[in-house]
């Protein structure tokens, strides 16, 4: 098999570029702790509503400007419906579904993950800028999928 000299250079540059991407991704994911949300916790989807802490979805303060948000994503909404924190707060989201698959996304942040029945998804985000942040479902979940949203108010 014969490779033209330019093709050899091109493939080497290409492979080198891809290797560079992999290195950047690995450093950022594993050394800087920015790996994608990969929680391994599980829950019985048919008993979400009676399993603590998801029986009472809400914000729990766990430190100075740090909260755990236990949330349910269901057809077609999120619970709790109202959340308020002061600017600079970190929220650790823990979300599960009692019915079908949902998505959990806060536009213009990196908070974006799937909510699978039987699993608890987790992700953290620090809300530095005040405002009313939109949380929306970005996985098709049924006829009312387009209304499935809530907000977080950051003061």
């Amino acid at each position: 098999m014969h490779l033209h000299r330019y093709e050899k250079i091109w493939l080497m540059l290409g492979a080198g570029g891809l290797a560079l991407f992999v290195v950047l991704l690995c450093v950022n994911a594993f050394a800087m702790g920015m790996a994608p949300p990969s929680s391994m916790e599980m829950i019985d989807p048919e008993k979400v509503m009676e399993t603590p802490p998801f029986d009472k979805p809400g914000l729990v303060q766990v430190g100075d400007k740090e909260y755990d948000a236990y949330m349910t994503a269901f057809a077609f909404g999120f619970a709790p419906t109202k959340m308020e924190v002061e600017a600079g707060s970190t929220i650790n989201f823990h979300v599960t579904s009692p019915d079908v698959i949902h998505g959990f996304q806060i536009p213009e942040t990196n908070v974006n993950f799937m909510v699978l029945p039987g699993h608890i998804s987790s992700a953290s985000y620090t809300f530095d800028k005040p405002g009313e942040y939109l949380i929306l479902c970005n996985e098709y979940c049924g006829a009312g999928h387009q209304v499935m949203a809530t907000t977080i108010i950051v003061k």
């Binding site: 014969h2 033209h4 000299r5 330019y6 093709e7 091109w10 540059l13």
Partner: peptide, 20 residues
């Protein structure tokens, strides 16, 4: 070694570099 190595592929190389 019948394949023409001297084939001019400068334009190709430039084009793939743009893609890259």
């Amino acid at each position: 070694k019948t394949q023409p190595e001297q084939e001019e592929l400068k334009g190709t190389f430039a084009a793939v570099l743009i893609v890259g």
